[in-house]
Design a protein around this nucleic acid. Structure first.
Length: 410
DNA sequence: AAGCCGGGGCT
DNA sequence: AGCCCAGGCTT
């Protein structure tokens, strides 16, 4: 259903649309004919019935932000595996700090949809901080494969060992104590303190920055606006239920106060939102322009052992791109250049190359396939500190190297 | 303060 | 296919 709502229509005219197709300014109070909308959840999105009717009030109405938000959260909180249910919350039950920490680290730069199944699998494999601390780091990295930002996994493991070894298996309960642990920065420390330990910490993530920029119509571009937005967030953070409050703000940012096409008609804070009253909510937060990504080139070597068809993997150095992860041997990635193969053999060059985009560059990588005999295989294994595997797809390879397997399949 | 780190979803 | 999104660590 892709109907668009006109700016004006006779009273009583009704429309129906998915909220994502709406232009937010049409819903601002500036329009000649007020819009009244009733929304209900439909599948993954929202279904709206629109009617053009006169509304009694179209300007900003006083809203007690934290109360309105908690009320909305009690009715609409998403049921996520790392959350305690409403019934348990009412009994005063606190969530397991280990689970809160694990979920928050996974959720850094990663969406709920991606994290949810991976979180469940991870928790089954490493159910406690002690179990995680006892595991070899290679097992943790393999389980993290495909999630990206692999320093998170190395720091997660370091942090588990610190908590298990130096804190008797218990996470520190204050922001400062948490902040001192590997992989726990300002955001994660505040989130764990609020959610697991009921501390009124000021939680700031991208979602909350966006909500604050809109609530207070902050037009300063990010990142310059960060201190101002933090000040606004601090002014609203309640002493009661700070964990629920923080999660409510993030849920609101993820589902209603979205980066594009915010669903203001569904927003419990609509009456208190300065940007919405001005009709500029879709333009906020403003951001400084980022540099364009350059393209780098390289070659990856898929080497099979003649006797059994096993494939050679290497482990990348701990520092830098894809640090500590398993990989196929590859050239340096940079300017277009003739590759230096790790061994002389009859290379087959795959007709399709691998394309992948990292945080700050595009990569275009030729795929060379070669076979070696057992003697050469042993020499290669030694000189590259490699390992032969008969199931590369099952080894926890980062996405860029999974794409190599895909290219060779075709 | 600025640059280094993946990957997935939406248009 | 291109654009958007976003914490922590290092230098």
């Amino acid at each position: 259903m892709t109907a668009s709502i006109p700016d004006a229509a006779p009273c009583g005219t009704a429309y129906r649309a998915r909220w994502k197709n709406l232009v937010p300014t049409r819903l601002s109070p500036c329009i000649p004919v007020p819009v009244y909308a009733v929304a209900r959840q439909a599948g993954a999105g929202y279904q709206l019935d629109f009617a053009f009717l006169p509304l009694p009030e179209t300007s900003m109405a006083p809203v007690k932000i934290d109360a309105a938000l908690l009320d909305w959260y009690d009715r609409h909180a998403r049921d996520l595996p790392w959350r305690t249910g409403p019934a348990a919350r009412k009994r005063g039950a606190r969530p397991d700090p280990y689970r809160v920490w694990l979920s928050e680290v996974m959720l850094q730069q990663t969406t709920v949809a991606t994290v949810t199944p991976r979180y469940q699998r991870f928790l089954e494999l490493f159910p406690t901080v002690e179990a995680l601390a006892a595991a070899p780091v290679e097992a943790v990295l393999a389980e993290w494969a495909g999630l990206g930002y692999y320093a998170r996994a190395r720091n997660l493991h370091k942090c588990a060992r610190a908590v298990a070894g130096e804190h008797g298996g218990n996470f520190p309960q204050t922001e400062e104590g948490l902040r001192a642990l590997p992989g726990i920065g300002a955001y994660t420390a505040a989130a764990i303190a609020a959610i697991a330990f009921d501390e009124p910490a000021v939680v700031m993530d991208g979602n909350i920055e966006r909500v604050m920029a809109r609530l207070f119509a902050v037009e300063t571009p990010l990142p310059d606006a960060k201190p101002v937005l933090r000040g606004h967030a601090a002014s609203l953070t309640p002493d009661k239920r700070p964990g629920d409050y923080a999660q409510a703000l993030m849920d609101l940012g993820a589902t209603i106060c979205t980066p594009r096409n915010p669903a203001c008609v569904l927003c419990p804070l609509r009456g208190g939102c300065a940007a919405q009253a001005l009709g500029i909510q879709g333009d906020l937060p403003r951001k400084k322009k980022k540099a364009a990504k350059p393209t780098r080139f390289g070659t990856v070597f898929h080497i099979t052992r003649q006797s059994d068809g096993a494939v050679l993997l290497v482990r990348r150095p701990d520092k830098g791109l894809l640090g500590g992860m398993l990989a196929f041997p590859a050239s340096e990635w940079g300017e277009k250049a003739d590759p230096e193969p790790p061994v002389r053999t009859d290379w087959q060059i795959a007709s399709e190359s691998v394309r992948h985009t990292f945080t700050h560059f595009h990569l275009e990588m030729d795929v060379w396939q070669g076979q070696v005999g057992d003697e050469l295989a042993s020499k290669l294994e030694e000189s590259l500190y490699g390992r032969w595997t008969d199931d590369p797809a099952g080894e926890g390879l980062p996405t860029v190297f999974r794409k190599v397997l895909k290219v060779l399949e075709d």
